[in-house]
Every structure is written in structure tokens, then in C-alpha cells.
Design a protein around this nucleic acid. Sequence first.
DNA 1: CTGGTATTGAAAATCATTTTCAATTAGTAT
DNA 2: ATACTAATTGAAAATGATTTTCAATACCAG
Lengths: 140, 140
Amino acid sequence: MTAELWLTQLHENGYRLTDARRAVVETVEKSTRALTPVEVYDLARRKYRALGLVTVYRTLEKLEELHLIQRVHQPQGCQAFISAGQGHQHLLLCKNCGQVAFFDGDDLDALTRAIARKSGYQITEHWLQLFGLCADCRTQ
Amino acid sequence: MTAELWLTQLHENGYRLTDARRAVVETVEKSTRALTPVEVYDLARRKYRALGLVTVYRTLEKLEELHLIQRVHQPQGCQAFISAGQGHQHLLLCKNCGQVAFFDGDDLDALTRAIARKSGYQITEHWLQLFGLCADCRTQ
DNA sequence: CTGGTATTGAAAATCATTTTCAATTAGTAT
DNA sequence: ATACTAATTGAAAATGATTTTCAATACCAG
């Protein structure tokens, strides 16, 4: 996924392409760690000085709506966003540097079925997130 | 876990027992769905009218610190708390009524090891949360 | 009972997010 | 190209959640 593709997605969904949106998209798309709206604002203003924080919020909203980014939940807070994975993927977060990796192939079907049987719940969704140290932080 | 035990825990950790804290503890301990600070405030004020919202925040903070409650992350927000499960347990949330159930016995070791190998991360923690419909909501 | 100190609630401060609004601008139709 | 028009913009104000400040109160050890 490149920034160009994200912009195309926006355009195809009826949104106009502006310098403000380009700056936000390029910033978020290339980040390998989750960014808060203010962090996006600070970084994106290097590309487009006139950018307003409100526009960052509004652009993030649209990107989330198009499933191009996703919110990251962490003990310290839940305001940060990262580019979304492809298909059904989960997050792996480095507690030290904040680096985000994706993984798929989680097969929780057996677990889910067992829990459903015991609890009487009909399970429709799951959230799984792993925390740890990335390869770089591990060796330092 | 009863409200009395929570109060004992607070006392044993050097905190004083007050009417305000008793009202908050009794409210949160007996709830089967996650409550936001304002919800706790509204409910607890039925027991202790003079309660202040600030005290609710301060008491929730202490209960979380003692691992008697835990924050619940949901798509609509992450400000709600629920009584914590025993040991290593995960949450199962009803999307309709908000009812919370706990489950344990999640064996994610095999999955975790596989992800660790592929990603190079050293995995130290995981968050797993299931969503669905509770038995009651399912049949309505 | 008493005294020292943790705790209280109200008000103000802070921080994150949303709304309002007039000016600008992207992109379509000419 | 040019003009038009609705979407988009940033600033300021409003809102909502949470934290800090502070003087008054009340818990509880002695």
C-alpha cells in the first residue's frame, strides 16, 4: 500500500485531493509506529506548513472509515493510529520503541467455539494484540 | 469477590475507608457491565448523595492500581471499567446489552511462539477480547 | 478523645476532540 | 481556459473528559 493508493481510494470515494490531505496521508502511510493526531500534525506540517490540527482529525476519520488506518489501543492511551493491515490481521507492538508489526494466521476458531459453548454467547468478533520487544530493541 | 473484600484490600494498602469510597466500591463491584466514571457517579450517588465526580476518578484509579478493576476497550471508547477477573482471564462482551463475561484457559502459547519466530519479536504479553451476543440477547 | 494527615468536593485548569463559520479551492461543466 | 459550486480549509469557540489546586472535613492510630 502506497500513499498514492490511499489518495486514489479517497478520490474514488468522493473526497477531494488537497495538499492538506496529501500531507497527512503521506505521513501516516509511511509510519511504522502508531501516531497520535498531534504527532501526525507535527510531522505533516513539515510537508505542508499551513495544515490545521482539525484537518488532521477530519482526515484520520475518513481514512479510518475507509479501513486504511486503524486505532491502536495501549495501556497509556487509545488515541494513536497505524496503517491497517491487509485482511484479517492483528498487531504486535514493541513496548520499547513503539514499532508495529502485523501478523495473520491466528486460528482462534477452536478457542472461540469452546468459549461460546461454556458461556452461551454467540461470538462474532475478536480483538487480539500482542506486546513485546522488537528484534532491534531486544538486542540493545 | 465481595465489596467487603475490596474495602479490606484498600485498607490493607494504607487507604482510609470513607462513605464515598464505600459507595463507589459497592457500585462497581456488583455491576456486570463496564461502567464509565460518570455512570459510576450517577449510580453511587444513590447510596451517598454528597459524592463528587473527582472522588470517583480517584477511587477508580486506586482500584485499578490494586488490580481489582480493569479498563475495558471498545470501539465506542475506552473509559469504562469492570471488576477484574481472577488470575489470567479475558473478557467477552455482549455488543447488545454490554454484559461482560470472563473466560480463562486461553492457550495462545503455540500461536505466540509461531509469531515470535516469524517476527523476531520477544512476546511478553497479550490482549484478547471477544465480542458477541450474550445468551439473553441472542434469544430476543 | 485528640491530633496529624489522608481525603473530600468545588472550582479552575488542562487536554483531546468537535462544532461553527467565513474564506478558499478542487474539480466539474461550460 | 474559465466560471461555478459544493467540498474543504484553518481559526476560534464549544464541548467533554480528566487532573490539579485548595481549604474544609473526617478517618483512625495512639
